[in-house]
Nucleic acid binder design. Structure first.
Lengths: 228, 228
DNA sequence: CGTATCTTTGAGTCATGTCAAAAACGGTGG
DNA sequence: CCACCGTTTTTGACATGACTCAAAGATACG
């Protein structure tokens, strides 16, 4: 393999980049290992650049009140993190923290920006990614406003299953702390706990340690529609 | 003015488009008047294309439950609507309805897509717009999860003032029904009503019909920080 | 084996939504 | 100009979902 080609198949950056631009990427990217719990950046930091996740998992979250936070979304292999640092404001509006060790790639904003100027296909792909994130965000926003906690937990579990898939036993392929799951659904720790209990008793899900198994997708989906 | 040049200064599409692409735009766009209350599209509709708002005001909203909705954002002169129709899903995930009469421009998805392929500057601008929308959306999401209604109303009023400005008397330059204001803050009609009352009594705002005047920005901003 | 960190449970409180009904408003047509 | 009807505003009472607080069990861990 040529030294200046991307050796990582799931590199969003390389996948959609011009052939003759790839050497420049190789020269400008910084690959590095990420430890569990490591913070890639936090809200308020100067927006230094964009991160591409090769492996592992990262939570993107936003604080409220020094105590509470909301997890906005998760990024895993092939996803981008830090794109909200784009635009005139020079700081990240959110934080990004690894929940699973892995490998990431950093590209500084200046180089990223020049890529956007040069590479239409890449920029277009970014538009698609952002449009999708926006769609998801607006859907969750609506849910936060109108859907009760139980439905939101159901929705969160469905989303997690879609994003991370399941292992051999059918358990969702991500281990989240209860606290993180609560922050992801926008509920308190205790509320989440009780709902998880309910769902287990009603046999909609199964729990083993931190792993969660969806037993009855149909009824879980019903919870997300509720009054309809 | 040449017939094939864009005659509308606030056309996002033309402003960032290549000179030699503008004739193609002129041939492919459809300008039309929008009446108050007119629905540009509704969620579930096939994503036919993108709308550019020249004048007037449009709300972008998402239903819940046939009764309730959340207003996600407003679009006015220079803004784009329908961009969430981008991507593999062929339907709009939201609705767009005029709250003020005005002028809009429609470009079908196919042509829009080919513009994205050809015009890097335009595509890059779109990235910036989307990144900004995403930022705003995620902020509001966090607020919906953790900020009490009063703070959200305060935030909504501040946002409206920033987006629409004020008229000679200092009143925010948009007339929203109370119902719409409630849907925008993610609260019930009655809750919104009581909060507006409170704020008026506390002399943070003034109300005249549907128009609202911000009297004390400082204390209003405090409400959005609350416990900090 | 003791200390710290999570889990689990219970009880109490409060913010917000719901429901219902009265009052005010606005337009329309006679 | 007024009587009427539909809509929006305003108010009160109430129900309840969800958060908070606090404390007792577990579990991990050095």
């Amino acid at each position: 393999m040529a030294k200046n080609e991307c050796d990582l198949k799931s590199c969003f950056l390389c996948k959609f980049c011009l052939k003759d631009w790839i050497p420049a990427i190789a020269a400008n990217r910084k690959n590095f290992e990420v430890k569990k719990g490591q913070q890639l950046f936090k809200e308020g930091d100067p927006a230094a650049g964009i991160y591409f996740i090769y492996s592992g998992a990262v939570k993107v979250h936003k604080r409220w009140d020094n105590e509470k936070e909301l997890i906005l979304r998760f990024a895993k292999t092939g996803d981008i993190v830090g794109q909200m640092g784009l635009g005139p404001e020079a700081t990240y509006p959110v934080s990004a923290t690894a929940i699973e060790a892995g490998l990431a790639c950093f590209v500084d904003m200046e180089f990223f920006d020049s890529t956007l100027n040069i590479n239409t296909q890449f920029t277009k792909q970014l538009v698609m990614v952002l449009a999708n994130d926006l769609k998801e965000s607006e859907k969750r926003m609506r849910n936060l406003a109108h859907m009760p906690v139980k439905g939101r937990v159901a929705q969160a579990l469905i989303n997690l299953k879609n994003q991370f898939g399941t292992n051999n036993d059918g358990y969702i392929n991500i281990e989240l702390s209860r606290q993180d799951l609560a922050s992801f659904t926008g509920a308190s720790y205790e509320s989440l706990f009780r709902v998880i209990n309910d769902l287990t008793e009603e046999k909609l899900i199964g729990v083993s340690g931190k792993s969660i198994l969806i037993r009855d997708t149909g009824r879980l989906v019903n919870l997300t529609a509720e009054t309809e």
